[in-house]
Design a protein around this nucleic acid. Structure first.
Lengths: 187, 187
DNA sequence: TGACGATATATCTTCTTGATATATCTTTGA
DNA sequence: TCAAAGATATATCAAGAAGATATATCGTCA
């Protein structure tokens, strides 16, 4: 696959531009929005957000505003038409294959028979995390049902993805625990 | 959750140590091994592998050997007892929650009704990628069935995870395409 | 013999994460 | 009413990771 294009492109900007479609917000507010809606498949740190916003302002993709609040100044950003266009163009590009780093699977892969109990503990922790995530998704689904505006369908599809992924992982956990139990019986 | 421990720990080393359990190998060979077995849930670049190997040698976790081959010198590394111990200790630590970055879902999340065709194209590409991955996993499963040595069960569980994840994603793709088709009917 | 692809080591830049610093604002309880 | 705690807000740094690229040798096929 001889690709010349740089796959190293900063994607933080698109996440921020997308969030700014909903209205102006400060870097801090953008981070909060992200953590309440996108975290399950996308996250950014302040170390990425603030510099990216500044850079995008230089490029004319967003516009900052100085808003004095008491003794301090907030900098709410809003998306420009150029920003909207850049986001639209990016949306049309086929998404790059994700790179996954799953620490649980890595530990499992290197485990030996004597690590059985360790592995079972890891699986059990994973189950708890997934169950909690499942509840979060179910609550989000209820909230989403209420507000059926434009683009609603696509957002609900991302949520459905999360729900199915969690369910599949829980089923795998059950399978894995059972297989490891069998192992114990045999010896 | 007041955690003092640095979550910023280099994990490349553990992947390399794990691979070195199977026998000595050069950085290049380690990369190849990784790409043929772990890629589906873990990957590393040369930019990580070579410096990490050097660093681990200084710490006494691996041992380099100078092996002249014709005009050039290979540097096969082998794991030391200290390395084995460090790996074992890491295996016992509960895995950190993965951070996911799914570009497809991000694009979906920001999509508007007019992006319908773009989204369908992305989904269709995703389906092809998943189908190809599914075939790879099925072939790997057959290979794995043959060699049932120690630790075989854990490796087969990681493969089973992959198979189930791919299957779940394919089912979601079908669901998503159907939902978007409904949308078209309605207007 | 030359071309090509695989082997092998290495470095650089950019991107990303997590930790930390600083300061103000808001809320809550003593 | 004062202090403490916690939320808001901006920012920077170090370490880690990804991707691109450079260099050179080896084996093999035409």
């Amino acid at each position: 696959m001889e690709t010349t294009k740089k796959n190293k492109e900063n994607k933080t900007r698109y996440a921020l531009l997308g969030l700014l479609l909903e209205g102006k917000a400060t870097g801090y507010e953008l981070k909060k929005k992200m953590d309440s809606s996108l975290v399950y498949f996308w996250s950014e740190s302040f170390g990425q957000i603030y510099p990216t916003l500044k850079q995008m302002e230089e490029e004319g993709l967003v516009q900052a505003e100085e808003q004095p609040v008491g003794d301090k100044i907030r900098y709410p950003y809003s998306i420009t038409n150029k920003g909207r266009q850049v986001l639209r163009e990016w949306l049309a590009i086929p998404p790059a294959a994700e790179i996954i780093r799953n620490e649980l699977l890595l530990k499992l892969f290197f485990a030996q028979p004597q690590d059985k109990d360790t592995v079972l503990a890891h699986l059990s922790q994973q189950r708890l995390q997934n169950q909690s995530l499942q509840r979060t998704f179910e609550q989000l689904a209820e909230t989403l049902q209420v507000s059926q505006q434009a683009g609603w369908i696509f957002r609900s599809l991302t949520l459905e993805y999360g729900l199915r992924a969690v369910r599949a992982e829980l089923e795998w956990l059950t399978y894995a625990e059972r297989e490891i139990a069998k192992l114990t019986m045999a010896r």
